[in-house]
């Protein structure tokens, strides 16, 4: 489903290279965890996957379902099924949450040649998904992410994911700032989306989330490269021994 080949990317503004020859393959149905110390390029990778223009790909390619997506803009990638749950969800005063959800869902449907949702159908879906994630209706009446607590913001990201039904879900530190109950709700939300035609990339620092969302593969990112890959036991190893050994071997 996702094939990243020898990817090099830099910050467009000042040319600093952040991703330095990264290879990663994620198959349909797979849950891949990406771990790595702070500053190793995990968020940058997630932004590049979703098409943020602050970064420039200088070498290599990203294939999604066998086709390069480098020429697609962020909204096209989203409409094709790539979703990023942000590490820091963005507040937008003046944009109503419900209106935002409706526009996003319908624009993606339009792109795919599907009919727009009727208002009752839209309301039904939002209500159901919100109830599953224990999101209070009052939160949905506020402007987008404005005044949401850290945990509410993360849950709102998963709500969007559930409504947009993407094929490739990238979760950037969705676990940070969540207490154990919220973590469980969020993990359930992600697990509910697991299916043979969908892939999930979970970016995290901690083993904790991976107890609930059990990964098929684990990859360690360091200085813009995948320096080690393995199965879920690798996550346990990292938890026990830290990154030092792996980083040492890679350096």
């Amino acid at each position: 489903m996702l094939e990243i080949k020898n990817l090099h990317a830099r910050i467009a503004e000042d040319g600093t290279e952040i991703i330095r020859g990264l290879d990663l393959t994620v198959k349909a149905g797979e849950v891949a965890a990406i771990m790595g110390p702070n500053g190793s390029g995990k968020s940058t990778l997630s932004y590049i996957l979703s098409g943020r223009e602050d970064y420039e790909v200088t070498e290599g390619d990203i294939l999604y379902n066998g086709e390069s997506i480098l020429e697609l803009d962020a909204s096209e990638r989203a409409a094709k099924g790539i979703f990023l749950a942000f590490q820091y969800p963005v507040e937008i005063p003046g944009v109503a949450t419900m209106q935002f959800l409706k526009v996003a869902m319908n624009e993606q449907r339009k792109y795919r040649g599907e009919d727009e949702l009727t208002t009752p159908e839209f309301m039904r879906r939002v209500k159901e998904a919100a109830a599953n994630l224990k999101i209070a209706p009052d939160m949905l009446r506020r402007p987008l992410n404005v005044g949401f607590s850290g945990g509410e913001k993360k849950r709102a990201e998963i709500l969007q994911m559930a409504l947009l039904e993407p094929k490739l879900c990238v979760l950037d530190e969705t676990d940070s700032g969540l207490d154990i109950d919220a973590l469980r709700v969020v993990a359930d939300g992600v697990n509910a989306l697991r299916s043979p035609d969908r892939a999930v990339v979970v970016i995290t620092h901690y083993q904790r989330l991976l107890d609930y969302i059990v990964p098929d593969t684990v990859h360690v990112l360091y200085r813009g490269q995948v320096v080690k890959s393995g199965d879920k036991t690798l996550a346990h190893e990292l938890e026990a021994n830290g990154y030092a050994d792996i980083i040492g071997a890679a350096a």
């Binding site: 979703s50 909204s75 996003a104 969007q160």
Partner: peptide, 17 residues
């Protein structure tokens, strides 16, 4: 970028902002 990343085309996203 946040709006675009949800599949909202750029002209529409700008109009929303």
């Amino acid at each position: 970028f946040y709006l675009l990343s949800r599949g909202i085309p750029e002209n529409k996203a700008r109009a929303m902002l």
